[in-house]
Simulated assay, not measured.
Amino acid sequence: MKKVVLFDLDGTLTDSSEGILKSIRYMLTKMILPIPDEETLHSFIGPPLRETLHHLYELTDQEARQAEGFYREYFAEHGIQQLSVYDGVAEMLGNLSKEYTLAVATSKPEVFARQIIEGIGLTKYFAGVFGADLIGERSKKVDVITYALAQLKDSAAVMIGDRKFDILGAKANQLRSIGVLYGFGHYEELAEAQPEKIVKTVEELPAAVREVLRM
């Protein structure tokens, strides 16, 4: 029975910052909310959108749902195409797919995640693409990972991601984890979350996965 390797999407497989940030600016403009500095804008990438809106703007649940609707309005038409695959990802997935069952576990709505994976030509590598629902009941990474594992019949192995949410979500599900530094997180954030390993490049991932699974 193959073991499972779960991948985050944004910041791990794709550089989706252009589409996400443009969607956020559109959303904030429609909500007549101030657009923050670049560092704060980047903090939207990773955690559930409503969670960040509550934290930064103290929106009510109704206001956050309205804002989320504006975000999806832009993203569905434009933002979903404004991304690129990190160099070496297809080769890395091809390498690992020979030994492991690969799947995506993302806080992005599953309907968008599936479209993205298909659009960038990576569908053949994955046994499943699992993401958030559209009503907000499954939005945190820990819940998405739980959901993904429930759908996959093989034994769990490791979660790979660029933000602390990936690492902490893995720990809550008794998974090992690998943090990547080429995405949207930074070393201090990942180190504090304590993954089993942190890598700098896509090319390091196959060896890192095998090393972590030998621990």
Rank of each mutant, 00 (worst) to 15 (best):
I35L: 09
V144E: 09
F130R: 10
M159R: 13
G88Y: 09
M27E: 00
D154T: 14
E118P: 01
R25H: 10
E77W: 01
L28F: 02
E192Q: 08
M1E: 04
D154G: 11
G183P: 10
I198F: 09
M31T: 00
Q194R: 15
L53V: 01
I20F: 04
Q174V: 02
N173H: 06
L152V: 15
P109M: 04
Q81D: 08
L59T: 10
L122P: 04
L83R: 13
A90G: 04
T60A: 12
T123G: 08
Q81P: 00
F130M: 10
R138N: 00
G121A: 04
Y71N: 02
T29W: 02
E73R: 08
P48I: 13
Y147M: 07
L152D: 04
I80A: 05
S17T: 05
I35P: 09
A64R: 13
L9T: 03
L102M: 06
T40C: 12
A157R: 05
Y100H: 13
A64W: 14
P47C: 05
H42D: 08
T52Y: 00
G69H: 08
D87V: 03
N173Y: 07
Q81R: 11
G46N: 09
L56E: 03
S23L: 06
I80W: 04
G179T: 14
Y187C: 03
P34M: 00
L122W: 06
F7G: 13
S16Q: 11
K171W: 11
E192D: 02
E68V: 10
A132M: 03
I117G: 09
G69E: 07
L13Q: 09
L56P: 01
R214T: 09
D10R: 03
Y182G: 12
E204Y: 09
G79N: 02
V111R: 14
D8M: 06
